[in-house]
Structures are given as C-alpha cells and as structure tokens.
Nucleic acid binder design. Structure first.
Lengths: 223, 223
DNA sequence: TACTCTATTTAGTCTAGACTAAATAGAGTA
DNA sequence: TACTCTATTTAGTCTAGACTAAATAGAGTA
C-alpha cells in the first residue's frame, strides 16, 4: 500500500462520508465539501482511480465509490481525527468547538504509534466528544441505532447521541443550550411543513431547531 | 508575516542550527542536513531571500544567515519541536529515542493554541527530554553554561546536561549506559590524540566515548 | 600567470495538486 | 426530433519544491 498525501486523505474521507448511504459521490458534492473547483476534483478522481491499488472506482459522469483499499485509508484517517478530537478535549482542555480544525491538520501526520498511545491513554474510547463513532484499531465501527432529530415523532422522549463537529458557532450554541450527547429531551412538536422540531429539556424553555440543523443531530428514542 | 510551509520551516530550522556560532551556513551543509541536492538548496535560498519580508540574507557563494523574521520562525518551530518531544515522553509514554521523528512532523501543523496548551500541561518546561533548551513563548532561550564533553579536562567531575536527539540508536545506547541529562560522572581520561574521552559513573565500569559522539554531549563542570 | 579542484550556481525538467476557460454528455423540455 | 440547461470533463496553465546535467567562481597550487 502506497503512502497517501494529506490532500488524497481528505478526498477519501469526504467520499467516505458522501457515500454512507450507498450511492456514489458526485464530483460537485466533493468539490463543495472540500471547497475546490469541480475541474480539480475530476483530475484527482482520475488519479485516485488510476493508482495501484485503485483507491476509488470512478465512472465518468456517474460519480465515485471507495474501493476496499480506499475505505481502509478513509477509516484510518477518521480514526485519527476522532481520537485526536477526544484527546484534545479530554487531556489538553480544548473546548469542543475548537478541536475540529486542529484534528484536521494533525490527522494526516500522526504515526500509528502515536494513534495507539492516544487510544491507550483515553482507554480506547468508542465515541468522540461530539458523539461520532471512532473506528476501532481493526477499522470496524461501533454500531448503534440513531435517527436524525427530524425523523422522530412528536411526543417521543429522546437522548442526544451525536452532533456535527465542523461548525464551531453551532457547537457553541448547542453547548449554551445544553444540547450535548447524553442530554435527554422530549420532542414537543415535530413540524415537517414548517421544517421545525421543538425540544423540551427538563423544565427549561422549549428549543426550536430548523430542519437543516435538526437533520444533523442524531438521537436514540427512549419512549 | 506570511505563512511558511513545512519545507521552508525545515530550512529555517537547519540554518538556525548551522549558524549558532555566528558564521553563515553553506549551501552544502544545509543540503547534507536536509538530505537534498545542493542545487535544490540554492533555489530555496534564493526564494527565502526574495520573500517579503526576507527570511534570510543570502550572498551568492558566501552562505546564508537568518533575518530577524527568519529567526522568529525558526525559534517558533524549535519551540514546537521541543515541547512536543517533552509532551510525547511525559504524557504519552514514548521512549526518548522515538520522539524526534514524530515531533519533526507535528511541529509544522500544531496551532499556537495547541502549543500553549501543551506548554501549560507540562508546566512550561525549559528543557526537553534530551536536555535541549525550549524557547519560551516570547522566543527567548534559557541560557546556561555548557561544554562539549571533549573540552573538559581529565579528572573533572561533570553533570550531563544535553545529548543529541536525532539518532535513535545512539539514544538507546546512551540510555543503556545510563548517560542521561542529570547523570553525574568523572572524566577518567581525556585523550585528544586518540580522540577518546572516558567517563566513570559511580562504581560502574569506565565508559569510553569517541570524539564524534563526545562532541555532541554537553555537560556542566562540577569541580 | 595559467591550472585545477571543489563548492556552488544556472538551466532545464518533473510532479502533485490546484486553477480558468471552453467543450460536451445526458437529462429534461419544447 | 431538435433545444436547453446543468453537471462534468477536457485542455491548458501555474506554483512550490524537488531533481539532473552542465557551467562557473574562487581558492589554492604549479
């Protein structure tokens, strides 16, 4: 297996995320996520597909998927990222809205040895501070039932499992509202037409969340 | 001040080390340290001198020196490197021969915020595990008297202050011989002609060190 | 004063990964 | 069946930082 550069690792990570639901990732979607021009993405996809071994399967105008080799690289980088986020919060006193950017740079340069040491001092955590699953050393992912907040029926009691990690302003806001992994709440109203879900947390004023945000908050249904 | 790339930071760090004694660093010396071709170094020196602000002063065929701006970058990177080495040993359980390479990659990507956090959890250390001085946040260096082992008269009692950090095999050997910063010893013989200095550590067999190694071990003279 | 050796520089090339501008495939519409 | 729109690709360019091969400056020597 050849060494991969930071840009290559970023592409693979992005493709991994965009193909979670099984469908190929489009050139434009990748370009948007990475803030690159689509033409640059096309060039890189061709190179990724031409590598030995190929890291993606690329059908012109139909998008890309990861090969097993590409998925391994992606999961390795994601493991680094989430272990680092956890480490920065737990051991270095970072706030949870500060760690994404730092982890995005460090994830490409830490050795396997360092990955192993970080995992060890953290006690091999399975979830990062935002509730995202951390791939294990063998690259398998801890599985659990999770549903976006937008798909839970009104009236349900829920526990927050996961929030997005890449928007510092949103994270500060969620923190101020005490909406963190572990927080329990009731769905006061679920209004698809208005695209708002309203949460009620133990005796505090109701919290309305628009669907663009609600779709990124994953929860488990308690009752 | 423009952002500097990892290669640029490596050049500046190397030039800093090569110019410690005040004389300009030669193209070849830099090439050798960085394992690059001299022609590549010439190209980079021209670019470093042409930057705004210039990071080096470069006189064709006479070598380079750092400008104040270049020195600041070098010291910043060296601070990162030595804080990281200390952190990896103290907090992540690395051995002292494992940390140099890891620090060489991390030093280019950690944020000022992370530098600050690492320094804080370590209690703002002034020396790294190999005894090298860590530039303070204001980039001043802790000063102390130190002499290479090769320049201490025979019979002196000494304390080891500093060993080189970049040779893992040598570090393992020194560790096995219990020659670490803090170790006290007596100079049993100092033989410039044979180029050997022999140390005696509290009731253990004498340890002969050749001058190429002895010149890299810095000590303070106790008596 | 010309000669030689070594360190250094110049000239030209390559690669990865970005870019812009122009071309085009294919889906959906008139 | 031709037309239009959008996503995507192609073609060509740029930059940093490496390389090799050839030229040369300057120190030291004959």
């Amino acid at each position: 297996m050849q060494k991969t550069s930071p840009p290559v690792q970023d592409y693979l990570k992005t493709i991994y995320e965009l193909t979670r639901e099984g469908r190929p990732a489009s050139t434009n979607a990748i370009a948007e996520r990475l803030r690159l021009q689509p033409a640059s993405v096309t060039g890189m996809l061709q190179r990724l597909a031409a590598r030995q071994p190929p890291l993606v399967t690329y059908r012109k105008r139909h998008g890309v998927q990861l090969t097993p080799a590409g998925r391994r690289v992606a999961l390795e980088v994601i493991r680094h990222h989430r272990l680092l986020e956890t480490f920065l919060v737990e051991k270095l006193g970072f706030r949870w809205d500060e760690v994404h950017e730092e982890a995005c740079r460090l994830e490409h340069v830490i050795s396997e040895r360092m990955e192993e040491r970080i995992a060890a001092v953290l006690g091999d955590p399975l979830f990062d501070p935002h509730g995202a699953p951390i791939p294990r050393a063998d690259l398998t992912l801890p599985q659990r039932e999770e549903l976006p907040l937008t798909q839970v029926p009104g009236g349900s009691r829920i526990r927050i499992l996961r929030v997005p990690d890449d928007d510092p302003a949103l994270l500060r806001r969620l923190d101020a509202l005490q909406l963190r992994p572990g927080t329990e709440a009731r769905i006061r109203t679920q209004s698809p037409l208005e695209a708002v879900v309203t949460l009620e947390v133990a005796g505090r004023p109701p919290i309305p969340l628009g669907y663009p945000v609600g779709a990124l908050v994953f929860v488990e249904v308690l009752s």
